[in-house]
Amino acid sequence: MRAELFLQYLVSGLIYGSIYAAVAIGFNIIYNATGIINFAQGEFAMLGGMIASSLASRLPLALAMAAAVAATTLVGIGMERAFLRRIARGGVLKMIIATIGLSIAIREIALLIWGESVRTLPFFSGTEVSSVGIAGAHFSPQVFWVLGVTALVVAALTAFFKLTLIGKAMRGCSANREGASLCGIDPDLMVTLAFGLSAAIGAIAGCAVAPLTQTHYAIGTGLGIKGFTVAAFGGLGNSLAAVGAGLILGMLESFSIIVVPEAYKDVVSIVVLLAVLFAKPSGIFGSRAAGALKDY
């Protein structure tokens, strides 16, 4: 294989991988807080991109994206407060099914608002035609934006969970809900925060990737499946593992073009998902010892 082609595939794998990782981290945050898989996770990314693209014609790009992230965060919080909290006593399975319903509702509402047209966001810097050359391969500057934003999100989240009292309280709540209650931490508030945080991260990912891949009312489904694959692949609940798993899946997809036609790209992630669920449901980075310390 020619070196620049290899580099091209590599970078494309990195980009998709980091977006999948961001969506997977959203899955993990909610999973840690509630024990459920939020199947509306991909919809957060769709909303982020779509709202930002609508606002971008009237507002400066950065402001449009900030507003999109804020609006999506409110959708996440509203979803938890208005629906999921009310059925929390009914058990995890009911809540998971409710998230599937909510994801369909959000998608249909998006279809009513934005129609079927494909939208895009302006590039964060430069235009579609500007490119950065590395070793004979050419990349859009947006590539570096996507990688930078994802790295920043991961670093900020790690700092939040390791260093701030609220972040620690959220971890404590997922480790032992009753113990957290007895420390004066309000578990319901932590769950709401988790939904807000996870919606915000999804929206950021949706904004970052929109200039490269364009956006559409239905992209959430695909992103959700990929994100879930990555979350399961890395080990549910482990956000750093999600980054590793995301990059691996991105690479697998991108290099699969060498052996199978591009149309089969999505098949790769489904195969990975099935293989992980059959062979190692705790995920490749999930260790039994650490898992045993979790209370759920």
């Binding site: 620690k168 309280a169 404590g172 032992n176 113990g179 007895l182 931490i185 310390l293 979790k294």
Partner: peptide
């Protein structure tokens, strides 16, 4: 005891 098992001693006390 209902401790936060995957967290450190110090973090448990902080919470």
């Amino acid at each position: 005891r209902k401790l936060f098992a995957p967290m450190t001693v110090r973090e448990n006390l902080e919470l």
